[in-house]
Amino acid sequence: MSVSEEELAAYADGELTGPDAERIGAAIAADPALAVRVDAEKRLRALLRGHLDPVLTETMPESLTLTIAAAAAEDTEAGMSDAQSPEPALSEPASPQPARILDFTAARARRQQQARAAARPRFVLPKWWGTGAAIAASLALGLFFGMRTQDTGVRVTSEGALVATGMLSRGLDERLASANESGKMRILTSFRLGDGGYCRVYDAGATSGIACKDQDNWILERTATSDKAQSGEYRQAGSAQQDLMAAAQAMAAGEPLDEAQEQAARAAGWRK
């Protein structure tokens, strides 16, 4: 009995049922040469899976999950009235569509431009942020004078970087800008850098600053202190925080995280 190449392949692909499957199965059982070919088909499949399956367990780029999380949050708020350019349903005949030209470089540039445009509404202090608190604050960009470490929870690494510890570190891990939680430590906004890393602007009363998540630690990139002795310059209430927000906008590769993105990022441990 002859078995065609197509039949053998269809058998290996599990496409045959009933009498067809039985017929080919019997032929293979009776002919070692056929069995060798079926085995080769199976090994090919295993080789391909072995080559590509590791992708399944690679770390997922957060942009993917965040994009979906953002859309899910949007749905709940806005309903579904604004969908554009629907994809043709699978059941529709596959008409040769005019090629939609979309090269990746241009698409990426466009995404970045959209992100910048979206950031133009700017990094603004949350509405709840105290407007009346008359703190005279001076901003010490990138410097660190006179901050009492026991209050703020900061240590200096051997390379001279400032690392958040204790309450500050916990607050950066756990608190949300959107939550308006009370307490000494508040998050004013959260954002991402061009390399995907997360940063947060915090206000811990005596000090405020911008902290960015390293592998394991929150590194303080900018700090500001309300200790007026640091500077002869007195500022309006909140100006240190406003300066921090401006610095954050300059550092950020897009708009501030919204509530859903912030929650998703927190759930992922602020890892890029």
Partner: peptide
């Protein structure tokens, strides 16, 4: 390139999600 492709696919799928029919296979779509 694969991750860019994935990102664009997800964005396109989300944008067109109204045209997916609930109860049909999402993966094939």
């Amino acid at each position: 390139d694969a991750d860019d492709l994935c990102q664009q696919t997800v964005e396109r799928a989300l944008k067109s999600r109204q045209s997916w029919q609930d109860g049909t296979r999402l993966d094939a779509w």
